[in-house]
Amino acid sequence: MTLLPDLALVLLILTAAVWTVAVRDRRDAVIGFIVVGLLLSLAWVRLNAVDVALTEAAIGGGATGLLLLRACARLVPRPAESVLPHPAMWILTGLLCSVIAAGLAAIVVMPVEPPATLAPEAAANMGELGLGNPVTVVLLAYRALDTLLEKVVLVLALIGVWTLTPEQFWGGAPASLRAQQSSGALRLLAQVLPPVGVVIGVYLVWNGADHPGGTFQGGTVLAAMWLLVMMADLREPPEIRLHTLRLLVILGPVVFLVAGFAGFWIANGFLSYPPAFAKPIIVIVEAALALSIAVILGMLVAGPAARAPR
């Protein structure tokens, strides 16, 4: 039975998910969620989607997990969080959710034949661009508009988080990310790991053109290294009014926009690349995006400014 490992993995994922929702303590819930994220990246490998597996591990489990843990630490402790408000309410919701799940399951077990796919079209056009990783090609060429707009979403999210800055602190720095008890091990880790992490991040971006990896994964690893340094108290989060910070945030979107508009002159329109230069242009755009993503992710975890500017 080759399905056995998959069935076991699915069972684990669902158990962890139920635990995440049902457990009373919210910190346990966050840990449950991180476990689900890690298990899901295994599931993505089994679905032959290595790029997604890397993203899920880096962002789904990693960055989101860190964000939620930090929120837990800052929220005032509450006694228990009861899950069951009223029997009628939870029975009704349970029924609704079961119906939706049953509907989805019924559709999933009846796949269409032949499978609906854009893989042949994606493959047919890849030769033009000279890149080896089809997912990168979809993200930066075929569906570049989605990727560009999604970068704008990240910038808007950062502005949204900064909106919540109390008036007197505008322009200042976010609260320190320092761990509660500063441990020597964390400091050591923060001194040793970043050089290695930066190399891995750069490698993921560079390699992403032809092999699994790419902007988000690389950017997230870079962000993780930065966050580690801030958590070990080796560096404070920067003030949000800093010009350099602002420029780093918009670097990726701006380079992407410039490459997009350049297409009007050097290729045949917005976000189109001349075949001979497609690969270098895409790699430059990816590098700039990765840097911006690292900075935005780091600042999103750090949160709004909590100190007046110096």
């Binding site: 032959n48 993200l139 989605d146």
Partner: peptide, 24 residues
């Protein structure tokens, strides 16, 4: 994506790219 693996790809890259966008 997995069901749509074809043309030398183990999985259809288009939904994979959508998921990466969605996760972010």
């Amino acid at each position: 994506a997995r069901r749509g693996g074809a043309a030398g790809f183990l999985a259809d890259p288009v939904p994979q790219a959508m998921v990466i966008t969605g996760i972010v």
